[in-house]
Amino acid sequence: MRVLAALSGGVDSAVAAARAVDAGHDVVGVHMALSRSRAEHRSGSRGCCSIEDANDARRAADRLGIPYYVWDLSDEFHDTVVADFLSEYAAGRTPNPCVRCNEHIKFDTLLERGLALGFDAVCTGHYARIDVRADGGRELHRAADLAKDQSYVLAVMGPERLARAMFPLGATASKAEVRAEAVARGLGVSNKPDSYDICFVADGDTQGFLARELGERPGEILDETGAVVGAHSGAYAYTVGQRKGLRLPRPAADGAPRYVTGIDTTRNVVTVGPETLLSVRELVGDAEVWLAPDVPATEPTACEVQVRAHGAPVAATVKRDHGRVNVALTEPMRGVAAGQSLVIYRGSRVLGQATITR
């Protein structure tokens, strides 16, 4: 197959590309330039698309003996991932930009361009497995290394994109094994630190980024009775379940800590209350993406759901209804916010995904 290998400049994508070459594929490396300020340098594990990353990707491609290109996708990234991030926070929801990046950039824009150029598949360094059934159907599963599993952020890709995806690291036992393989192959990125946090917020100050982009919008913080207990400079800067950074002038009457329990950006109000108000037993999601046609779930179906990239799955009953997903949890889940990605599993297999609305 002709394979387009996405090279981020990190160790995972480099080893994934190397394995694709070993498998006999015709591999071409491409680095996605996503930042509009590529003259900046990396700061440890934060940021992306820096000069160092592009150079590291080029050196990896040279070592593997494959062609290498840089594709400027910064406009697409800004207009989809960054714009969605800002609009979701402005509406009082809590988005996951990694989910949107995989949906719109890595397995939409990149794949679309690759297919137009005659490539058969896109290869990435994600930690997830693709199992092929006897009937040829493809299933997305958790990675063998659960500590690195990225199936949660990949669930949004849909069956058509799944058919064109390759994840060579999915069955690898540990990240240490990947780094050791990089050393053996002479790849200079073997000790490069993993990236984390939001890639386009290089300093890690999400609230500062939102304030710069959305501006200050002073408002009130109310308790569960409706009494004013504090003030904020923008309701968008808060998320359900948040405890730190509330800066309330006085504690609750019983001295118990208070958490954000609601965000109303129309009224520009943040509501806080005791931890007990954070527990929910039902979830509703829309914009459903379903990866398991053999598990229709149009009737109540036992499964597990996960609402954070590295959160614990919770047993639940799920029912699909014309693009909407209704979830009844077997035990309460705490601090769930609208806008989060709801991923549905059966064991290690990803069944589908939706965006939480309430």
Rank of each mutant, 00 (worst) to 15 (best):
S174Q: 11
G339L: 11
T301R: 09
R185F: 02
A184L: 04
F107D: 09
D223P: 05
T172C: 11
C199S: 14
V178H: 05
G241K: 06
G204K: 11
R243Y: 07
R308C: 00
H232Y: 09
P67V: 04
E177D: 13
H141T: 11
L111I: 08
V81K: 02
V183N: 06
S151P: 02
L278F: 05
E220G: 03
V343K: 03
V81E: 09
A176C: 01
G92W: 08
L222D: 10
S341W: 09
R267F: 03
Q306C: 13
P249K: 02
M1T: 09
A147R: 15
A297G: 07
R113A: 07
R212G: 09
Y259C: 03
A61S: 07
A61F: 05
Y89R: 15
H31M: 04
P332I: 04
L140K: 06
R217I: 01
L111N: 00
R100V: 03
A6P: 10
P67R: 14
T109W: 14
K106C: 13
S348A: 08
T206V: 15
S13G: 02
T80A: 15
Y68A: 02
S35G: 08
R349E: 09
A155Y: 14
D197C: 04
W290E: 08
R142G: 11
R164G: 05
G158P: 04
V156E: 03
S35I: 07
C49M: 07
W71E: 01
A165W: 01
L291R: 03
E139H: 15
P159E: 13
T172A: 13
R100Y: 04
D203G: 06
